[in-house]
């Protein structure tokens, strides 16, 4: 599950422009549409502040 570190994310919106699924929207802070996100990880590569990561939530399922 894609997770944003709200302490370090500045809301620059770079990730929004690289997301192939149009699942991200920056508006002061980052909103993630989990219905659209297919965990392709592209956004993580392009985040200038290293604020995006994949959290392992398998134990919640």
């Amino acid at each position: 599950m894609l997770t944003v570190n709200e302490e370090t994310c500045v809301g620059c919106g770079w990730c929004q422009t690289f997301c192939p699924q149009d699942a991200l929207r920056a508006w002061g802070y980052l909103e993630i549409d989990y219905k659209k996100c297919d965990e392709c990880l592209v956004c993580i590569k392009f985040c200038p502040t290293d604020s995006l990561s994949m959290a392992d939530v398998s134990h919640h399922k």
């Binding site: 500045v10 809301g11 919106g13 920056a26 200038p48 502040t49």
Partner: peptide, 11 residues
Amino acid sequence: LHVGCYWGEWP
């Protein structure tokens, strides 16, 4: 279309 905020560690 897009909103970009630049501050903090990416100022």
